Simulated scan of single mutants.
Amino acid sequence: MEKNKTGTYLKYAIGEIILVVIGILIALQINNWNENRNTHNLSKIYLNNIKKDLITDTITFQSGIKRFENSLVLQGDLFNPVKVNILPVDSLFSAINTAFHSARIYKINNSTYLKLTNSGFVESKFFNEIFIDINNYYTKEYNTWLEYLEWDKENGTTIYQPESFIRLYDIIDFPDFEKQLKSEFQTSIEKEYKVAFREYIKSPNFRNYAWKSHKEMKALLEKMKYQKSVTSELIEKINNELKK
């Protein structure tokens, strides 16, 4: 101040402040850029992992579709009196064991989505639209499919329950019958079992239970086909996003 250099010092101080501010802004920008890059990379990792889960879903649904279609064909044979008369009893027994089953093992794999939601990553600003579609899939579609599985559990017909084979339970010991069917030797009891079994398959009582199960399986098959198509579409959307 004695040498009248106050202005020079003020300019110097202002310059220092400006440099510090610029440095802070650059550091913040670099940090923000690194965070965005890490978030973007993490988003891609989640998308790829979800895609793997969805591919697993399509394999699961395709397996279920094939099994249900084959089961419905076998059930058709059981509804055909001519085939029931022609087919060997062990083939009929095997057909019933194969043709009537539930869909409860065909579940949607949501393991990656659970990790994603637990981390709060559903709100990621990258790939926002596809994450919205993913969220819809694992809420709306997932819950709807669970409702179908629960419906199948509550209403599905177990064909060997006493109410469906009520009269035969007084005649046939089914575990023993199955064991004898696998044996090379025929017994008089087995012959009686075979006659009773074949006649019961042609009876209205059995056909009513079998037809109920047949209609339920057809409904589940159509739903399973729809779920597979929705899953495949979502995989395609993810592929398109990852290519961008």
Rank of each mutant, 00 (worst) to 15 (best):
K5Y: 11
T8P: 00
L10R: 05
Y12H: 00
I14L: 12
E16P: 07
I18L: 09
L19A: 15
V21E: 15
I24P: 05
I24A: 08
I26L: 15
L28E: 14
N31F: 12
N32P: 12
N34P: 03
E35C: 09
E35Y: 03
R37L: 14
T39Q: 13
H40T: 11
K44E: 14
N48A: 14
N49R: 07
K51T: 07
K52V: 14
T56M: 01
T58G: 00
T58A: 02
F61S: 03
Q62S: 01
G64E: 05
I65D: 02
I65E: 05
K66W: 05
F68G: 05
V73W: 02
L74K: 04
Q75W: 03
D77Y: 01
D77A: 02
N80Y: 02
I86M: 00
F93Q: 05
I96F: 00
N97W: 03
T98Q: 08
A99P: 02
F100G: 04
H101G: 10
I105K: 08
I105G: 04
N109W: 00
N109I: 08
N110V: 05
T112W: 10
Y113A: 07
L116M: 06
L116N: 03
S119A: 13
S119D: 15
G120L: 04
G120Q: 09
E123Q: 00
K125S: 14
F126S: 15
E129P: 08
E129C: 12
I132T: 13
I132V: 10
D133M: 05
D133Q: 09
I134A: 10
I134M: 06
N136L: 12
Y138L: 09
T139E: 01
K140A: 05
E141P: 04
E141R: 12
N143G: 07
L146A: 00
E147S: 11
D152F: 06
K153T: 11
K153L: 13
K153M: 10
E154N: 09
N155W: 11
Q161H: 14
F165I: 15
D170M: 00
F177L: 02
F177R: 00
E178N: 02
E178C: 04
Q180F: 00
L181P: 00
L181R: 01
S183Q: 11
E184L: 15
F185I: 01
Q186D: 15
Q186K: 05
K191L: 11
E192C: 13
Y193C: 00
F197L: 09
E199Y: 08
I201G: 00
I201C: 02
S203K: 06
P204N: 09
P204R: 08
P204E: 10
P204D: 13
F206G: 04
Y209Q: 04
Y209H: 07
A210R: 02
K212W: 08
S213P: 06
K215F: 11
K218M: 14
K218G: 15
A219F: 06
L221N: 04
Y226C: 08
Q227D: 15
Q227A: 15
K228Y: 03
K228C: 02
S229M: 12
T231A: 05
T231N: 06
S232K: 13
E233R: 02
N239M: 01
N239E: 01
N239T: 06
L242I: 15
L242R: 13
K243R: 09
K244M: 14
